[in-house]
Every structure is written in C-alpha cells, then in structure tokens.
Write a protein that binds this DNA or RNA. Structure first.
Lengths: 130, 130
DNA sequence: TAACGCTGTGTAATAATATAACATATTTAA
DNA sequence: TTAAATATGTTATATTATTACACAGCGTTA
C-alpha cells in the first residue's frame, strides 16, 4: 500500500495549478499565478516544487526548466521518467512504455555504478508540427 | 566522410578548456577561466558553447547546467546522448552502449511523433561513493 | 506536559544561469 | 565582388534558483 502524503497548503495550491495545465509550467509563471492566493516569493514556489518532485506528484523537464504533473495517478514514480518534447510547439508528453522502462531499469554499465533514477527526454516534431 | 568543422578563435579556446577537464564545466566557471584569454562576457561563452553543442564536440548535462567534452573523437553525435551521474561526487561519464542506443534510436511512441534527438541521464552512486 | 525533531511558512537579499539588442568584423559562397 | 552567413565585442537585462534568518505547527517521547 502506497503511503498517502498529506500536502501542505502551499503544496496543494501549486500542485492544483500544475495539474490543471496539460503542459509544463515554469516556476516564475507559477509564482505569478499563485500571488492571488498569497504566495509571494520564489522560494515558496521552489520549496513546494521540490517537495512535489520528491514525492513524484510532478516531474521536472530538465531541458526546459519546467514542471509537469504526473498523470500516472496510482503509482507516482519520481525516479524513472520518459518524456517526448516537440521542438516546434513545445508540447510535452510523458511516455509510459513498459518495454523501454524495463530496458532502462535493467541497464548496467561496465563501471559498477548503482543506479536509482533516470530521466530520458526525446526531442522531435509532433504530428501537428511535422 | 565527416565534415571537419573549422572552429573560430573563441570556440577553440573554450573547447580546449572543456576537453582538458574530465568533468563537466559550468558556463561561468569557463568564463572565469578564459578571461585571461580575452573572453570577457557571458554571451561570448554561451555563443561558443551553443555552437560546440550543435556540432557535437561537447554535450550539455541538462540536470546540472554543465558542459562536457564528447570523447567519442571520430563520430561526434549531438543528438543521442547517455550519461551516468553520481549524485554524491557528481562524477559524470558518457555511456556508449550499443544495445541501449539501438533501443532508443528505434523507439516509437504511439502518437506518431518523429524523433531526431534524445538525452538520457542515469543517476546513482558510483563505485567510490557506494 | 515540556522538550525535541521535523516539516512547513514568510521575507529579504542575492547568486547563478542565460538572453536581447546593437554595432561591427570576418569568412564563405554565388 | 557582392551578398549571405557566421562570429565578435559590449552593455544591459531577463530568467532561474538558493542562502540566511526567524518563527509556527505537530507529533513523539521521556
């Protein structure tokens, strides 16, 4: 059974906003949007973001410095993420591909390194933008 | 036959510095180091970095905002990168794994997206840090 | 129930990363 | 040999993220 995290006020406000967007949001755009809810400083946003990332409710798109909600409602995974990113319209989609995930999970390098996390980003053109 | 790019003065200076380091360098640390060579402004560094990334001489470690030389001297690939990153000592190594690369190259999602690039970062603890 | 650890909040200041805008020079290709 | 493309230099500024400090709330435990 998964531990159900109790979110704090700021964490809820920010998760709520990110979940309502189907596309990644940037920290300062989040800040702008939550000012009306009494969140005034970047640090308040980053603290909530960090926590939400940590518990797998959202993911950071590293190449874009932006944050997207994890749609995989049941089993939040903070440590194994795959995204496709359209370089034209910037549309981002999380990919759930069992075979690929398995491959990445099982990957062993030749240096004896112990992995506990990976992040994969595919770039290209989506159907609309081809 | 691979086209041999001719690098400009600033590009050479900066590539040279990055190649001498076996670990990723950050833009402003590069800037600091090349001031003695007459490169004075962030933009001069970023311009060179962008070009070097584009032609595959260096790669950006997205999760670290840092740049590392591509050791794969013959066939610089700017569009298919795999790294392992130690979360303790921050050691970064580029991974060349034929099977995994093949898998990623051949990956097709179910949305008809056309990929031309990917970047994969593995995180964990290296031998020394376990 | 008092003391403690843990997590979260609020605020100000500042650090770190990256780009815009403008003027000019150099190289490449038609 | 002129036009296009690429590179340079400089100033200013935008964007992303963290440090430092003070304090509040909550559950544990001694």
């Amino acid at each position: 059974m998964q531990k159900q995290e109790t979110l704090s006020k700021n964490q809820k406000i920010i998760l709520d906003l990110i979940e309502k967007s189907d596309q990644p949001l940037k920290a300062y755009s989040i800040l702008f949007d939550v000012k009306k809810k009494g969140i005034n400083a970047p640090l308040q946003v980053y603290r909530a973001l960090n926590k939400l990332v940590k518990i797998g409710k959202i993911h950071k798109i590293e190449s874009r410095n932006a944050f997207i909600a994890c749609k995989n409602s049941k089993c939040q995974i903070a440590n194994a993420t795959i995204f496709s990113i359209c370089e034209s319209c910037e549309d981002v989609t999380e990919i759930h591909d069992h075979k690929l995930s398995e491959h990445l999970r099982d990957f062993k390098d030749n240096k004896g390194m112990k992995y506990n996390k990976y992040n994969l980003e595919f770039f290209g053109l989506c159907k609309k933008c081809v």
